[in-house]
Nucleic acid binder design. Sequence first.
DNA 1: AAGAGTACCAACCGCTGCAAG
DNA 2: GCTTGCAGCGGTTGGTACTCT
Length: 242
Amino acid sequence: MEGRSQGLRKGTWTTEEDNLLRKCVEKYGEGKWHQVPSRAGLNRCRKSCRLRWLNYLKPNIKRGRLSPEEVDLVIRLHKLLGNRWSLIAGRLPGRTANDIKNYWNTHISKKQELSSNCKIRSTWEKKTADVSFPTEPVRKIEVTKPRPRSFSDHSRRHLLDAQPKTPLTGSNDKDHDDDNNIHDGKKACEKDENGIMNTIVNDGKEKMWWEDLLEESEGAEENPWMNSDATFHVDLWNLLNA
DNA sequence: AAGAGTACCAACCGCTGCAAG
DNA sequence: GCTTGCAGCGGTTGGTACTCT
């Protein structure tokens, strides 16, 4: 717990604070966030510094509204991934998880909520006609929980040592282990620039773990266990093509 | 013009997972 | 194996800008 917030500044960042943080990150690089406040001379907690950098100060961050293409992608990815904002943001260059989350909460979820309520929907649609969205009411999707978090060198070494005991994802479904584990050293894991864990296939082609899931689901007809498995009720291709 | 309602977005909070000791 | 600290994530809140009446 962050129980040492006494005397730390909260609230909106000033330009001066932004400059201090920017200089600090430029000098020392990202990471070691617990050292950032003292290094930068900021009276902020490390979380606040990290968030400010990731959501606002980081170079290449796109400001402004999401394009229709981006919105479409967000909707599709949300169907697939659920509220995994960081993963969704990872597929939208320049957009942060906070952006996506805010957008979803203020635009799309509201629309989908209202889409099940025909009485007020037409009025609402008039106001927000620029955004396309699925017409069916949102369904709560139980997403299998592979949590692609950071992998240390140690972990990677562990994986590359072809130890089949360490799942790459958090899935506790033994039937899926073959796809998630390293076997014969054919797969390894690597974080992308967003810190998202990717799967590296042995031919060097990089894939996201969920792209693997897509492929798996595509082959579900040939793999009857896929449909009978409680963790995999979602017809991913149907969702993406909806 | 002014007040009310709504939209947007930055930031905080609490929790989880991982790594190190 | 357990504990502790750190990093990261998602949910939520609060302030400000904008729109409507």
